[in-house]
Design a protein around this nucleic acid. Structure first.
Lengths: 373, 373
DNA sequence: CTGTTAGCGCATTCAA
DNA sequence: TTGAATGCGCTAACAG
């Protein structure tokens, strides 16, 4: 409710110069403890918050970080953003949203990146699944705008990166199916141009090979991470002669799995009785579909949070007034050298996914002896 | 790629003073056309973008608008934000994200609002479904921070508001059921403290009464807009003796409908054969569930877009460089008087919802003669 | 119509 | 250890 105290007001009230107020605000060492104490008291009392605008102008540091968000088309963006917002809220930074319209040509997206650079508003950038523009983000990063990429769909470049272990996720999903007694396990592959498509497939392959199961190219269907692809895959698999037909399907996206479910119904095929199904992503709605979908839960919230922490640490300022809650896998040591921009190896943080077992795989079949450990 | 031209550079290159550059940049009338032309050329060439930070400091106007977002827990936030981002991207404004953690006490949310006020960063505020804090937002608005509320869950205060016509939505849903031949139609009511719960219920009542159908309090179940409430409602309705049991259910949220579906299965009740079901919201996943859910589609994207346009128009500056695409119901005339903060009647924009008919209601029953018009 | 002069609120020199 | 002076990039008041 207070009008809007400026640093001048605080200085006057504390009986010091604004320079001193600025000093204590920025945790400069050379300040008399008593003075610091007094200034802090006034600051608290007046709940004084320095103007980000002015601070940015004067200091060249904007205390603003940008989040490049793909047009909110993917359902899990929200979870990532929750993590981002949470991390940011624990610091004096603010979050600026830059939305990419993936419906338009990629030129426009580069326009946005140019805009980000041009306005010079943010001092760091969080690129969420940038896809094609990721090369450009990489350039921005090298150019001097600290950036981190979250779960890029593209080949990772030389830029800090946070994501999940897609390969291990694919491995878990497939292994689960194998342990349930399945041998003919199909896979619905994502688009070739996404790195994660390959990684998930690699996990699938590894699990199959470890179990001594053959990799049948006939059992791999490829498409986008959307429902229609799942439908197409369903038609493809379910129209196979029974002895060739897979008894289980590992879809590399929950949306794909939804498509399979819809088509299965049309074929009179019951899930999980006739065919087991595992998805990938862990969308909320996967708990609602019938049967509830067993899936690989990606740690979206954590990804957002960790990526933000990483970016903030790169900005390398003593901002962390309130301590962040523990994040077990966070290794601040690996961050040393940042801020001076002279690190060598690109940072990559892989946060593990977890397999959520629900109904879509049923119980062990064929008298399989394997028990879940 | 250019270094970072300042207004001084532009001024020098154009052979004018920076004041003049500033003038053309801000579309001031008193500038020689030739000069304006020349300056613009340089600006284009250098792709000069004035520093938002400096502009804000000097002008007192920050060209930044804040979006108060409820912790991304609701699935449709993404759609709203898509609309917001789209509208903002057509202007020189940037969007700052303030995330409310509804998991915490509401005190914290007020803290955020205080923070918004304190940092004085944004020149306008978009409050998305603020719920409890809406009174505080209203105060901020009166206090001088232009704000608009999107789809508030609370009683609307004296503040610009954009939302959908919940009552009409409830009316459409119920009428659809009635036209299908249903007479015992149940309703799952949202929490009392949300205005939209009442509105949707009112629509339900109106449709029932118009059709001369009795309002049976037994057929109304109340709870949150979440799946468990739907499950509870399902148990409640399905354990009724068959002659009392409703033949149709209008759930005031899609998530509730999902719960009903899950429980129906447990009771061996088939949807739509045994009971018809309509939801409310139009979540994407409602097209994926089995059977696909008939629902009232809220115009989330439009709500975000229109609310942003409204807020921007209140900020009352000649920013609209690129024209916004047509939005039919947008009446600029109703906005006159804004910006001087001396308007009388609070603006309310209701964007119509639409009924999406899918599978969960089946076809007309009881040889009903009614045909959809 | 246009250039000059002051600041916006703060950080960062310089002296003291 | 602290205060005074200078300037960040831009807008706004004032002259001319």
């Amino acid at each position: 409710m207070a009008g809007k105290p400026t640093i001048n007001d605080i200085a006057r009230m504390a009986g010091v110069s604004k320079a001193t107020v600025s000093r204590v605000l920025n945790h400069k060492p050379d300040v008399d403890p008593a003075t610091r104490e007094r200034v802090m008291r006034i600051v608290e009392e007046q709940s004084f918050v320095p103007s980000i605008t002015a601070t940015g102008l004067a200091g060249g540091q904007s205390r603003l970080i940008g989040a490049l968000v793909p047009a909110f088309t993917w359902p899990f963006i929200t979870d990532i953003m929750r993590g981002v917002a949470e991390a940011v809220s624990l610091t004096p930074y603010e979050l600026i949203l830059y939305s990419i319209n993936d419906s338009r040509r990629s030129d426009d997206n580069i326009d946005i990146l140019d805009h980000i650079l041009a306005t010079k508003l943010t001092s760091g950038l969080l690129a969420i699944m940038p896809g094609q523009p990721s090369k450009y983000v990489t350039r921005l990063h090298k150019y001097g705008l600290p950036s981190v990429i979250i779960d890029d769909q593209d080949k990772p470049g030389d830029i800090p990166w946070v994501g999940t272990d897609n390969k291990h996720g694919g491995y878990m999903a497939t292994k689960h199916l194998i342990e349930l007694g399945h041998r003919r396990i199909a896979h619905i592959h994502g688009l070739q141009r996404y790195l994660c498509s390959h990684e998930r497939y690699q996990g699938y392959c590894q699990a199959m090979q470890e179990a001594g199961l053959p990799l049948d190219p006939q059992l791999v269907f490829e498409g986008e991470f959307i429902q229609p692809t799942g439908r197409a895959a369903g038609h493809y698999f379910f129209s196979m002669p029974p002895e060739q037909r897979p008894t289980a399907i590992f879809a590399s996206a929950d949306l794909m799995a939804y498509g399979v479910m819809a088509v299965a119904e049309e074929y009179g095929i019951q899930i999980p009785r006739d065919v087991a199904l595992v998805g990938f992503d862990g969308l909320d709605s996967s708990a609602h579909v019938r049967p509830a979908l067993t899936t690989v839960q990606q740690p979206f919230y954590e990804m957002g949070r960790r990526a933000t922490e990483l970016l903030l640490s790169m900005l390398d300022k003593p901002h962390f007034a309130r301590k962040l809650p523990d994040s077990p896998a966070f290794q601040p040591t690996s961050l040393n050298g940042f801020g001076n921009n002279n690190y060598q190896e690109p940072i990559r943080i892989h946060i593990p996914s977890t397999l959520i077992v629900r109904e879509s795989c049923g119980s062990p079949r064929h008298l399989s002896l394997s028990t879940p450990d």
